[in-house]
Design a protein around this nucleic acid. Structure first.
Lengths: 157, 157
DNA sequence: TTTGCATACTTAGCATAGCTAATTATTAGT
DNA sequence: ACTAATAATTAGCTATGCTAAGTATGCAAA
């Protein structure tokens, strides 16, 4: 269905299309991630660890509470995830000299490498899909991406 | 960064932009779902159950193996998820008369209602974000969505 | 200063959700 | 009628989510 968004279009039709675009974007986001996620097994760590490590790598050193908030999980959950990452040598957990209740979590070289390689595998898979498209379609996706970036508040990567 | 995709552009620059668009789409998909997922607690079921139930609702009655494959999990995992959904009265598990090893999983009215309401809450949240945009930007997202739908193989919803 | 409350993290214990291996029931092939 | 293949389940492990409670530190008011 192709519909014009001219300024004289009744409000109701505009809203119907907002809904259609929202539904479609939502569905596409689900399918896109479902597809690229198939590459993640090569990282050798679970999804929660991979996602948390990604925040540490791209969001710089941060405290446990900050990391838990970024990942939308409770501190005890993140405490255990970080413990596993430390055990595997993927992050460092150091004392914060300004506030000794707090910890500073930073990525090791090994952790950074794993995340960059994992991210690269996901993106390669996506790029392979995109390479079927012509230049105009890529340009459209590029502009759409910039629009989405503007309205999606991003706390990392 | 705004770049032309003219037919005479060197191959290397084209590829650089494919990468940039891929990276950006990937990041936006992550942030979009991270945002809308905050509505899911209102459904009162866990993420695996919600996702599986969604496939049953939108993908029609299907067998356990089909459901497991659609959700990218192993049959034993899905067997337990379905058991929970049956216990909560959200799906039915019936014998397949043509092959009595197999089962037919279908949604109950209650399950269908929960999923439609949950989907609606997610989409309302997304539409609220989109409503900041002007008509041209919405049109761009609409076209981008249709392009993505074409290249993302969808097994449900 | 010290008393007491707030904050940051961890520990303990529970539920859900992922896996492999092994079991049961049924179907299909020789 | 055997035997192999297929569909689902059961058993048991790990990972990841939660709340409640514990420990250590910081901060503020008496």
């Amino acid at each position: 269905m192709i519909t014009s968004y001219g300024v004289h279009m009744p409000r109701k039709l505009r809203e119907l299309n907002l809904e259609e675009v929202g539904r479609s974007l939502h569905s596409n986001a689900i399918h896109l991630l479902r597809d690229v996620r198939t590459e993640d097994s090569a990282m050798g760590i679970g999804p929660a660890q991979a996602s948390a490590l990604s925040v540490v790598v791209f969001g710089g050193p941060l405290s446990l509470n900050e990391l838990a908030e970024a990942e939308q999980v409770r501190p005890p959950t993140m405490s255990r995830v970080v413990e596993a990452l430390v055990r595997e040598g993927l992050v460092r957990r150091e004392a914060n000299r300004d506030d000794r209740r707090s910890i500073i979590i930073s990525s090791t070289d090994k952790g950074t490498k794993i995340i960059h390689e994992g991210r690269s595998r996901r993106e390669k898979r996506l790029i392979k899909l995109l390479s079927q498209l012509d230049a105009d379609e890529i340009r459209c996706l590029g502009r759409a991406s910039r629009i989405l970036s503007r309205i999606l508040v991003t706390k990392h990567s």
